[in-house]
Write a protein that binds this DNA or RNA. Structure first.
Length: 921
RNA sequence: GCCGGUGUGGCGAAAUGGCAGACGCACAGGACUUAAAAUCCUGGGACUAUAAAAAGUCGUGUGGGUUCGAGUCCCACCACCGGCACCA
C-alpha cells in the first residue's frame, strides 16, 4: 500500500475545511433566547438573526453519542463508528432544516488516571487533561460537526458541582408510594411513635433516596474499593477482572428499587432494540408470586418467631412442598437449630460464608446443605416438613427462605435426590408422555386438595385467594434489582456533599451540606493509594476532613457512573451557572415538541417524540449507565426538573469492530488498528466512509484495511469527476519539487474538468441522479449507511462515462455525499461554485435535495417470465402494457415455449409491471 | 439451562413473498506504459456440456411445510455470537 499514488489531496483539504468550520462556528446549535450572529449559515438558512425565541427556531433534533472515557491509549476504530453514524445523521438533519444539537464531552473520572497517580504521584487531573487533549485532537481530525461550545468533562468543577447538586436532591427526597413518585423529604410524615429528634432523623434517613446501609457489599481488595452489583461479573470486577468478596461495610446506596416498576414499564414507551430492553427487563427481574407463612412445629426449640415466611412464584405447588430451605444467613437459623444439629449447622454456615462469590458460582453444580433439626407445618395440610439450610437459597432475594417442591423445581429436585427427601407430584404435565419429575412448566394441579384439577394459572389464583382469606399469605411481587451501591473508596471521583456529626447520644449521623457549599472540592494529596482497611484516600487529608466546624467530611466518593447519569442534560445549557439546566432550554430540546411549532416538516422523523431523539453507543452499558441514567432522569422528572419521564427516546447500539483476523481487537493479539495510521494514509473522509460501508451499523464486523482502500479509490473517482487530470499532475509536480509548500496556493493549481458545464442535464442523467437521491435519502432515514454509499457508487460509475457533466446534477450529488465525506464535498462544492449560474450557499446548510418520482418512471420494462417459478426468459415490454398483453407475450416467448408445449397450463400469474409466472402441470 | 441475535460466493455484504449475489474487496484478462504503479475497460456462485457460444442442473446452515412462486412466512433441528445464570 505504501508508495501508491495519492488519490486526491485530502491532506490539504481536510485541515482546510476543519479550520473553516471552526472559524465560522458553523455547527453551533442555538438555544432559545440566544443571539444568532449576523451571517451565521444557520441564520442565513432560516432567516434568523439576533435573539431568537423558541417559537422562531426550527424543529429541534438531539443526536447524542455516548461520551468516551479518555483513556491513555487514545481512540480506537470502534469509537468513530458510532460517532460517524451520528455525524452523518446530524449533517443530514441539518440540511433537512432541523436545529440539530450534537455535542461531545468526556467521561473523565475513572480508575486508570488514579492508578497512574498512585504509581507516579502525578495528579489525576493532569493525566486526564492530557488524555482529553489527545482524544479531542483525534476526534477533531475526523471532521465531526460537534458544537464544541458545549463541550464538558465530568471532572470539571463547574460540572461536578451540579452532579453533587443532584445528589442533594436524591438525598433530600423520598419515594411516596401513595403518589408513586419522589417527593421532597419534608412531605414525609412521621409515625406516631417517632417523637424525639433522633428518632425523626433516623426515620427520615431510612426513607431517603440516598441512604447509608451497613449491608454486606462487593469488596474488591485488589482495587481497594466496593463495587455495584452491575460492576461484578461472575464474581470478578468488571474492570480488571479481580476477585470480589462479600464484606459488611457502611456504604451510600441509592434507592433505585423504588423505581423498579417504572423502569420496567416505561421500556414499552421507548424505541430501543428488543435485545437491550430484554437485558434491562432481566436485570430488573420482576416476578409475581405469593408470600406464604409456615408455622414452626413444636419440637422443644424456643423461637421468638413462630413462623417462617417464604416467597414462591408457584403457590399452586404448595401441596407438594416436602421440606423448607433457609439461606445460611437467615436470622431464624440460630433460633430453630436443635442442639443435636448445632455443630453441623455452624460448620455449614462457616463453610458458606468462606466462599467468595466466584467460588459460589463455580460450585453451583453440586448442591450442599444441612438439616437444622427443626420442622415446619405446611399451611395447606398441616404436614410436618423438615427445615434445612443450603446456600442455593440466597439471603438477598425474596425472604431468604423457600418452600421446596422437588417434583416441580429443578434445584429442589437435585437437592431432594441428593439428600433423599420425598418428591411428591402435584402438577400433571399437559402431555401425558412427559415425566412429571422435574416438570416445571404449567400443567394441571393433582394431589392438591381443593385446587386439584385446575390448570396452573387458575390454581395459583385460587390458592392465593385462599391464603389471603386465612391470613396465611399474600400476593407479592419481587425484583432481582438491588439498590445501587453508590460510594467508592477512591480519590478521583466526586466528593459527597455530606458531613458526619455526633449526636448527644454519641451516635454519629450524616447531614447534607447546603447548596451554597457546592462544589465540594477534593483535597490535594501526596499519596493516592487506597488503604487496605477500606478507608478511602480522602481520609488522609486531615485539614480537608475537618474543614467544616463540628463535623467530619464524608470521605467516600461517587462512582464513575454519577457523571454520566445526566451529562446529556448539561449539554443543553453547558455554561449555566444558575442551575444545572435552564427550564426553557430543557423544554425546547427535551420536551414534547408538539404544539411548539405550527406544523411538522414533511419528514419521516416524528418530532413529537420527547427526549434525546437519537442516542448511539456500545452495548456494554446496557444495565449500567443506561439503567442509572433512566433512574436519575425519573427522579428529576418527579421533582419537576425535566419534562419527560424517559431521557433517551431512540437508542441504537453500534456493533463491535473486530480485528482483521476476525478476533476481538486487543493489544495481546496485536490486531489493534490505530485510526491515526488510517487517517494518515487514506484521510478522514475515506475512514468515515469505510466505517459506514463495512456493513449494518448494529452488526459485529471485521476490519479490513483493503476495504478502506476501496472506498478511498471511490473518493478518488469522485474527485476525478470534477477536476482536470492535467492540472492534477502539475499540482503533484509542484508539491514534490516546489520550495513553497503553501497548501492553499498548491490547491489553486488544480482546475475544474472541462466536461463540467452549466448545461441542461439529459433525461438519463436526471434519472441516475434522482435514483441516487431517493436511495440515499431513504437509507439515511433508516440508518442504512452501507447501501446508501453503494447507491452513490452506482451514480459515480455511471457519471464517470458522461461526456458532459451538468453542474446542477454534479452539485446535487455533492450534497448527497457531504454528510458522509464532508471535506471532499466542501472542496468540490466550493470549486464548482465558480461556474454556477447562482451562488450555491453554505454546503452544510444547503436544503437537502428532493427526488422527483416522475423522473424515475421507465418507458420500457424488463419482465421476467417464470415457468413453475423458474426463470425462463426476460421480455421487454412497454410500461403501459396491460396484463393480457404481458400474458400473451410471455406465452409466445421462444425460450418459454419448450417448457409449456404439450403441458397443461394450470394458471398464469401476472404481477403488473413485475413478473409473469406460468404454472404447468 | 433461560433470554436475545445471526447463518447468503474466496471475503465484507445486497435483495416491500416476485430475475439471489447490487455495491465493494481480493482475483483473472485486456488497454495505456520501455517496465511497473496508478488509471480505464472486461469477466466472474457451483456443476454439466461445448472448440466457443447457446443451453441445462443445482444453489441462501439442516429437514419438513404453506404458496403459482420462499433467502424472505410457518414448524422442528443444528452451529456461532451476545447477555443472564441456584432470583424460588
Amino acid at each position: 500500500m505504501a508508495g501508491s499514488r495519492r488519490q486526491y489531496p485530502f491532506h490539504l483539504i481536510e485541515p482546510k475545511w476543519q479550520h473553516t468550520w471552526d472559524e465560522q462556528q458553523a455547527f453551533r446549535a442555538f438555544n432559545p433566547g440566544e443571539s444568532v450572529p449576523a451571517g451565521h449559515p444557520f441564520g442565513v438558512r432560516h432567516q434568523l438573526s439576533g435573539p431568537v425565541a423558541a417559537t422562531q427556531l426550527p424543529p429541534k433534533f438531539y443526536i447524542l453519542d455516548m461520551f468516551p472515557y479518555p483513556s491513555g491509549a487514545g481512540l480506537h476504530v470502534g469509537h468513530p463508528e458510532g460517532y460517524t453514524a451520528t455525524d452523518i445523521l446530524t449533517r443530514y438533519r441539518r440540511a433537512c432544516g432541523f436545529n440539530v444539537l450534537h455535542p461531545m464531552g468526556w467521561d473523565s473520572f475513572g480508575l486508570p488516571a488514579e492508578q497512574y497517580a498512585v504509581k507516579t504521584g502525578q495528579h489525576p487531573r493532569k493525566t486526564t487533561e492530557a488524555n482529553i487533549a489527545n482524544f479531542k485532537r483525534q476526534i477533531k481530525s475526523l471532521g465531526f460537526s460537534y458544537d464544541w461550545s458545549r463541550e464538558l468533562a465530568t471532572t470539571d468543577v463547574e460540572y461536578f458541582k451540579w452532579t453533587q447538586w443532584i445528589f442533594l436532591k436524591l438525598y433530600n427526597s423520598w419515594f411516596n408510594p401513595e403518589t408513586n413518585k419522589a417527593e421532597p423529604i419534608e412531605t414525609l410524615s412521621f409515625p406516631a411513635d417517632c417523637t424525639t429528634e433522633a428518632q425523626r432523623r433516623s426515620y427520615r434517613d431510612s426513607k431517603r433516596l440516598a441512604f447509608v446501609s451497613e449491608a454486606p457489599v462487593n469488596w474488591c481488595p485488589e482495587l481497594g474499593t466496593v463495587l455495584a452489583n452491575e460492576e461484578v461479573i461472575d464474581g470478578k470486577s468488571e474492570v480488571g477482572g479481580f476477585p470480589v468478596i462479600r464484606k459488611p461495610m457502611r456504604q451510600w446506596m441509592l434507592r433505585i428499587t423504588a423505581y423498579a416498576e417504572k423502569l420496567l414499564a416505561d421500556l414499552d414507551t421507548i424505541d430501543w432494540s428488543d435485545s437491550l430492553k430484554e437485558m434491562q427487563r432481566n436485570w430488573i427481574g420482576r416476578s409475581e408470586g405469593a408470600e406464604v407463612d409456615f408455622q414452626i412445629a413444636e419440637c422443644g426449640v424456643r423461637s421468638a418467631e413462630s413462623k417462617i415466611r417464604v416467597f414462591t412464584t408457584r403457590p399452586d405447588t404448595l401441596f407438594g412442598a416436602t421440606y423448607m430451605v433457609l439461606s445460611p444467613e437467615h436470622k431464624l437459623v440460630p433460633q430453630i437449630t436443635t442442639a443435636a444439629q448445632k455443630q453441623a449447622v455452624e460448620d455449614y454456615k462457616a463453610y458458606a460464608a468462606g466462599k467468595s462469590d466466584l467460588e459460589r458460582t463455580e460450585l453451583a453444580k453440586e448442591k450442599t446443605g444441612v438439616f437444622t433439626g427443626a420442622y415446619a407445618l405446611n399451611p395447606v395440610n398441616g404436614e410436618k416438613i423438615p427445615i434445612w439450610i443450603a446456600d442455593y437459597v440466597l439471603a438477598s432475594y425474596g425472604t431468604g427462605a423457600i418452600m421446596a417442591v422437588p417434583a416441580h423445581d429443578t434445584r429442589d429436585f437435585e437437592f431432594a435426590k441428593k439428600f433423599n427427601l420425598p418428591i411428591l407430584q402435584v402438577v400433571q404435565p399437559p402431555d401425558a408422555k412427559t415425566d412429571w419429575q422435574g416438570f416445571t412448566d404449567d400443567g394441571t394441579a393433582v394431589n392438591s386438595g381443593f385446587i386439584t384439577g385446575l390448570p396452573t394459572p387458575e390454581a395459583k389464583a385460587k390458592i392465593t385467594a385462599w391464603l389471603e382469606e386465612k391470613g396465611l399469605g399474600k400476593k407479592t411481587i419481587n425484583f432481582k434489582l438491588r439498590d445501587w451501591l453508590f460510594s467508592r473508596q477512591r480519590y478521583w471521583g466526586e466528593p459527597f456533599p455530606i458531613v458526619w456529626k455526633k449526636g448527644p447520644d454519641g451516635q454519629s449521623y450524616h447531614e447534607a451540606l447546603p447548596e451554597s457549599a457546592l462544589p465540594v472540592l477534593p483535597p490535594t494529596l501526596e499519596d493516592y493509594k487506597p488503604t487496605s482497611s477500606g478507608e478511602p484516600p480522602l481520609a488522609r487529608a486531615k485539614e480537608w476532613l475537618n474543614a467544616v466546624p463540628g463535623a467530619q467530611r464524608e470521605t467516600n466518593t461517587m462512582p464513575q457512573w454519577a457523571g454520566s447519569c445526566w451529562y446529556y442534560l448539561r449539554y443543553l445549557d453547558a455554561k449555566n451557572t444558575a442551575g444545572f439546566v435552564g427550564k426553557d432550554v430543557e423544554q425546547y430540546w427535551m420536551g414534547v415538541a408538539s404544539g411548539l411549532w405550527p406544523e411538522k416538516p414533511a419528514l419521516s422523523a416524528d418530532t413529537t417524540k420527547p427526549g434525546v431523539d437519537l442516542y448511539v453507543g456500545g452495548t456494554e452499558h446496557a444495565v449500567l449507565h443506561l439503567l442509572y441514567a433512566r433512574f436519575w432522569h425519573k427522579v428529576l422528572f418527579d421533582l419537576g426538573y425535566v419534562s419527560t419521564p424517559e431521557p433517551f427516546f431512540k437508542l441504537v447500539n453500534q456493533g463491535l469492530i473486530l480485528g482483521e483476523d476476525g478476533q476481538k481487537m486487543s493489544k495481546s493479539r496485536g490486531n489493534v488498528v490505530n485510526p491515526d495510521d488510517i487517517l494518515k494514509e487514506f484521510g478522514a473522509d475515506a475512514f468515515r466512509l469505510y466505517e459506514m460501508f463495512m456493513g449494518p451499523l448494529q452488526e459485529t464486523k471485521p476490519w479490513s484495511t483493503q476495504g478502506v482502500a476501496g472506498v478511498y479509490k471511490f473518493l478518488g473517482r469522485v474527485w476525478r469527476l470534477f477536476v482536470d487530470e492535467q492540472s492534477e499532475t502539475e499540482f503533484e509536480q509542484a508539491e514534490t519539487t516546489a520550495a513553497a509548500q503553501d497548501g492553499a496556493a498548491l490547491l489553486k493549481l488544480i482546475k475544474l474538468d472541462a466536461r463540467l458545464k452549466d448545461v441542461a442535464p439529459t433525461p438519463a442523467q436526471l434519472k441516475t441522479l434522482h435514483t441516487c437521491i431517493k436511495k440515499v435519502t431513504e437509507d439515511l432515514d433508516a440508518m442504512r449507511f452501507n447501501t446508501g454509499i453503494s447507491a452513490m457508487m452506482v451514480f459515480v460509475n455511471d457519471a464517470i462515462g458522461w461526456e458532459t457533466r451538468p453542474v446542477a446534477v454534479m452539485q446535487t450529488f455533492l450534497q448527497l455525499l457531504a454528510p458522509f465525506a464532508p471535506h471532499v464535498a466542501e472542496e468540490l462544492w466550493d470549486r464548482v461554485a465558480a461556474i454556477c449560474p447562482q451562488p450555491p450557499g453554505n454546503l452544510p446548510y444547503a436544503p437537502w435535495p428532493k427526488f422527483d418520482p416522475a423522473l424515475l418512471v421507465e418507458d420500457t420494462l424488463e419482465i421476467p417470465v417464470q415457468v413453475n417459478g423458474k426463470l425462463r426468459d426476460v421480455i421487454k415490454v412497454s410500461a403501459t402494457a396491460d396484463n393480457a398483453t404481458l400474458q400473451a407475450l410471455a406465452l409466445a416467448s421462444e425460450k418459454v415455449q419448450p417448457f409449456i408445449v404439450g403441458k397443461n397450463i394450470k394458471k398464469v400469474i401476472v404481477v403488473p409491471k413485475k413478473l409473469v409466472n406460468i404454472a404447468v402441470g
